[in-house]
Amino acid sequence: TFYNFIMGFQNDNTPFGILAEHVSEDKAFPRLEERHQVIRAYVMSNYTDHQLIETTNRAISLYMANL
């Protein structure tokens, strides 16, 4: 899942690491979701930090390219 992918960046001092920290603390994050459209919609609806949203979009693109 995307959640498992992004958790691989925990403790990294990178934008993906920052995203992983936010996702791990977000109890409502769709952890079992595999459809990138649902993940993107969730982030757009629940996150207000523009940098975090952009990082999510980049992470989703990388995740999709590696499926």
Rank of each mutant, 00 (worst) to 15 (best):
E34R: 14
Y3Q: 00
A41V: 08
N66A: 15
A28L: 13
Q37W: 15
N46F: 08
R58K: 12
R35I: 04
F5D: 00
N66H: 15
N4D: 14
A65K: 12
V43H: 02
I18E: 09
Y47A: 02
S24F: 13
K27Q: 11
R58G: 05
E25T: 14
H36F: 12
I18S: 08
Y47V: 04
L62R: 06
L67E: 09
Q37M: 09
F5W: 12
F5V: 00
D12F: 10
I60F: 06
I39V: 08
K27F: 08
L32A: 11
A59N: 02
N11V: 05
N13P: 12
T55F: 08
F29I: 05
E21G: 12
Y42R: 01
H50Q: 14
V23T: 02
E34C: 14
A65W: 11
M7K: 05
R58E: 09
R35C: 13
I53A: 05
L62F: 06
E34K: 15
L62W: 07
I18A: 12
F9A: 01
G17T: 04
A59R: 03
Y63W: 15
N13C: 10
R40K: 11
G8L: 12
F16K: 01
E21W: 14
H50R: 13
V43K: 00
F29L: 02
N13E: 10
E54P: 03
Q10W: 13
L19A: 01
T1E: 03
M44G: 06
K27N: 10
N66C: 13
T48P: 07
G8I: 07
I18D: 09
T1G: 10
L19D: 01
A28F: 14
R31N: 04
S45I: 09
T14F: 03
E33P: 03
G8M: 13
M44H: 09
V43L: 07
M7E: 01
R31S: 05
S45P: 01
A20W: 08
K27W: 08
Y42P: 00
P30Y: 10
S24G: 09
N57Q: 11
P15R: 08
F9W: 06
Y3F: 12
R31E: 03
I60W: 06
L67F: 10
G17R: 07
M7P: 00
M7G: 01
A28G: 13
N13T: 08
N11W: 09
I39A: 01
F2T: 01
S24R: 15
G17F: 04
L32W: 13
Y47F: 07
P15A: 12
Y63R: 02
M44I: 11
E25I: 11
S45W: 06
E54T: 08
T14Q: 03
Q51I: 13
T14K: 03
H50E: 14
M64S: 07
Q10S: 10
R40N: 06
N57M: 15
L32Y: 14
F29T: 08
E54W: 06
Y63D: 00
E21R: 15
A59G: 03
F5G: 00
N11L: 07
E54V: 09
F16N: 01
Y3C: 01
N11S: 08
T14C: 06
M44D: 07
I53G: 03
R31D: 03
A20Y: 06
V38I: 11
N13L: 08
E34L: 13
Q10N: 07
G17D: 02
R40F: 12
H22Y: 14
M64R: 09
A59V: 07
L19C: 02
N4Y: 10
N57I: 14
F16H: 01
A41D: 14
F5A: 00
I60D: 00
R31H: 07
D26V: 09
T56H: 03
R40A: 10
G8S: 14
G17L: 04
S45F: 08
G8R: 11
L67V: 11
P30V: 07
H36K: 04
N11D: 08
M64L: 15
D26K: 03
M64Y: 08
D49H: 05
E34A: 14
P30N: 02
H22K: 14
N13V: 07
L52K: 02
T14W: 04
I53H: 06
V38G: 04
L19G: 02
E54I: 10
V23F: 12
M7C: 05
M64N: 07
A65D: 10
N57S: 09
R31F: 06
D12G: 07
I53D: 02
F2G: 00
E33L: 03
T56I: 14
I53S: 04
I6Y: 05
N57D: 12
N66G: 13
Y42H: 04
S24E: 08
F9K: 02
E21F: 14
Y63M: 07
P30E: 02
F9H: 05
N13Y: 06
E21K: 15
T56Q: 02
I60S: 00
E54Y: 07
Y3N: 00
A20D: 06
P15E: 14
Q51D: 13
A28E: 12
F9T: 00
D49N: 09
L52D: 04
V23M: 10
T56D: 01
A65R: 10
Q10A: 13
N66R: 09
E25R: 15
M44C: 09
A59H: 11
L52Y: 04
R40S: 08
F16I: 04
T55M: 07
A41L: 11
D26S: 04
M64I: 14
E21P: 03
L32Q: 12
M64W: 07
G17I: 05
K27L: 11
D49W: 05
L62V: 10
F29W: 05
H22S: 06
G17A: 10
L32I: 06
Y63P: 00
G17Y: 04
S45V: 08
D49C: 07
Y42N: 01
T48K: 12
L32S: 12
A65P: 04
